[in-house]
Design a protein around this nucleic acid. Structure first.
Lengths: 252, 252
DNA sequence: TTTGATACTTTGTAAGGACAAAGTATTGAC
DNA sequence: GTCAATACTTTGTCCTTACAAAGTATCAAA
């Protein structure tokens, strides 16, 4: 058994299943990723060179390169010509996940609760129609929700979703996150534009969220499109700055 | 001259320079990107299939695929097996560019001005050392700046940069953005972690920025690492919410 | 008319080979 | 001993070829 060579070059252990429908390059990539996240491949360490690695794993160099490239794209590895491939950072999430507040809360173990304050179907306003790229007057479902974490109000959320994208009912929205509903309807959001800002709470916002009037609020407006370029959601949300912030990882 | 075929399949015009040191796939990609952004290739249109395109441009299919893949990665194109490649979105910037406020302002044509209020070299605090991943007590340059757009104050910025990353002088910081300096010193930030939130202005902040006390402020703390995984910058900034917001595009 | 099988188109994965370019280490001349 | 030229290592780009898988359209049979 060839163990770690002398000069600190790391030899990851990878097991492949050529019968699996999962692409080879992806199997290699996730295997490496797990070992990096698990700490078996320490940060700063240098990886075996591509050619050897490909050889040892029994895959072609293009496949090996694609696997490495995948991890480079998400900031876990760095390669330099003439030098090699290094492990740079263990826990890196993709540039900001395209998830909803509901998902975020559920993931961190806090019980999300949603109150649907209003929901109506009507023609889209010019502004909404334009940002979503749909004809003016297209029917959209417009609704307002308050999101709680446990008993504490977190955010007021305004949304507009074209009715032909998915038919929304208040009951569903109280039980599930909007993105969850969109996904199960096959309208997966693929690309989104977000603007994050801040403002002072209006009297209404303050009352609904239990903050003093003028309290700092984090605002986020988002437009999301599905894979065919169709606008699926427009949202304009207000978060209590004292309870919420956005975290994101960017790679250049 | 073969013009646009009948069924609306788009035939981009691409001119390649094989003598150029710029990779072929990148030439193809930027050429396509320009035509998409310029509107010559309309949103929703279907691209010629890979094989034909590669053939017509005189490149191999892998090269063509790499070019298309590059644009798919940043959300401009979408491909589906058995269907083809479609243009989904014209103006999409990379998931949030890893730039500084100075760069942002300069790009949008507003004259950025910087006032360095303090600058000192000393051992890093525990918190800073930990986030940057450097030993406690490592010497860092700590400085405070106010950034103006024209005559109007925009933000208060606090930073810490290890002295062995780059030696910083107040004069340089008044003339150039921090990221510009880092780049020219060869310490290119490659990956960063940002947290965006909001808060009310303290009395000092309000005074410095010319806002009333308690005015809503957008906060951003960022830690950035270079390609070798070394922490190069820690920043904690406060922006006037009335004058600044973050815009970002995310792909899932 | 509807259903189901079939053919076709188009992208996805994979292999193998060749050369270029960048960075590092070594060696030789002065 | 220092510095420049050289060799070597390693990733970057590009090509050709082949087959698999998904989606669409066609066509025939019930």
């Amino acid at each position: 058994m060839s163990e770690q060579p002398l000069d600190g070059v790391l030899v990851p252990k990878v097991v492949l299943d050529r019968a699996s429908p999962v692409p080879l390059y992806y199997q290699v990539a996730t295997c490496l990723q797990e070992q990096i996240e698990g700490g078996e491949l320490p940060v700063g360490g240098r990886l075996e060179n591509e050619v050897e690695l490909a050889d040892r794993l029994g895959v072609s160099r293009p496949t090996m390169r694609k696997a490495i490239g995948y991890l480079v794209e998400r900031g876990m590895l760095v390669r330099r010509r003439g030098v090699g491939t290094q492990i740079v950072h263990p826990k890196v999430r993709r540039p900001v996940e395209l998830t909803s507040l509901y998902d975020d809360l559920a993931k961190t173990g806090r019980a999300p609760r949603t109150e649907v304050r209003s929901l109506e179907v009507g023609p889209a306003t010019d502004a909404v129609a334009e940002t979503l790229g749909i004809p003016t007057g297209t029917l959209v479902t417009t609704f307002e929700r308050i999101r709680y974490a446990g008993d504490e109000p977190l955010a007021i959320m305004h949304n507009a979703v074209p009715v032909d994208v998915v038919a929304l009912r208040a009951e569903d929205l109280e039980q599930h996150g909007l993105y969850e509903i969109l996904r199960s309807a096959g309208r997966v959001p693929r690309i989104a534009n977000q603007v994050v800002g801040a403002k002072a709470a209006t009297a209404t916002e303050a009352r609904l969220l239990g903050d003093p009037r003028g309290a700092p609020m984090l605002t986020m407006t988002r437009t999301a499109w599905d894979e065919s370029g169709r606008g699926v959601e427009y949202g304009s949300h207000v978060y209590r700055a004292s309870r919420y912030s956005f975290e994101l990882t960017l790679t250049c």
